[in-house]
Design a protein around this nucleic acid. Structure first.
Lengths: 160, 160
DNA sequence: TCTTTTGTAGATAAAAGATATCCACTATCC
DNA sequence: GGATAGTGGATATCTTTTATCTACAAAAGA
């Protein structure tokens, strides 16, 4: 029961794109260098975010990636779902039938257990649906004005 | 973000011990055969449940395993914790510093993100803390009277 | 239109963790 | 003291995650 490190990578990516000057795509090479992974691997991650509808890819010269929605419309759970998928956290291997036989009460107990865990997972998801990327950024920088920059510019001032 | 199959195995084990005639330990060989795993592997799982304080081991002739608490005192979360441990679901690899530099706002954002996910995990755990093994069994069998048997008896009636 | 720059997709390999087993050892009951 | 139970270490296998390379497709711009 761990989130993969891909979630952390996705979070960093979304933060970059959320603070990117409007209408200027960020190239994947810039991001891959920041994250310290190969361009090809970085693109795999980006692709997941594209498929999930969080970001858009812009092909061609001066292309790259931009947010597909405003940060206010991206709940944190979307990052997790994009990387991990949103499958049930508990999936049976059919062990109950093997252990107790293919009888009604076993089947019922199995479904009940599955249900209990799924409800817990729903509570987890609900918490992460409540907070958006925008809110997360605002609370981090202690202001509602999110500064933008052009991440493509290498050493504008390498902080912030 | 998946629960390991060990949780399912632990659940089956606890169900067996919860329906076991009082004061008669169930041998690990009986359980390992039911679950279809090797005796040595089954004992590893049992050990985790012992360490967590859910079951007790009884060495010697006519020994085996018995519940350490009544089913009413075992919340489902204990099964998960016993097998998976209860570490934070999100653990950073230090990527934020690599990506954004070792600056204050990055550190703060990282902690904030960690906090958000941890709170979601708490919601998950709270749900599984609310329901006990006893309640789970009662709702499965539709009665408050949990029948017991001796699982060591091979084919008493191989159902239930 | 053609070249360059960008993203897309498949094959593949290395690393980590989960799953599982064997065997030697220890403790306890009878 | 011998048989039967659990404990612990070393180890093998399998799956998933992480990561990379290379070939390919699409679009902007000259």
């Amino acid at each position: 029961m761990k989130l993969t490190s891909g979630v952390e990578q996705a979070a960093c990516i979304i933060v970059m794109l959320s603070t990117q000057a409007a209408d200027i795509p960020v190239t994947s090479d810039v991001i891959s260098e920041r994250l310290g992974v190969s361009p090809s691997y970085l693109k795999k991650i980006m692709r997941k975010l594209v498929v999930r509808g969080l970001i858009k890819s812009v092909p061609g010269v001066n292309g790259g990636f931009v947010l597909a929605k405003t940060p206010a419309c991206i709940p944190i759970i979307d990052l997790v779902d994009a990387i991990e998928g949103n499958e049930p956290i508990f999936q049976s291997t059919g062990l109950v039938r093997k252990a107790f036989g293919d009888i009604e009460v076993a089947e019922k107990g199995f479904l009940k257990f599955e249900n209990i865990v799924n409800e817990a997972q729903e509570a987890f998801r609900a918490k992460l649906s409540d907070i958006t990327v925008e809110k997360f950024l605002q609370e981090t920088i202690d202001t509602n004005e999110i500064q933008v920059k052009d991440w493509n510019q290498k050493s504008d001032e390498d902080n912030d």
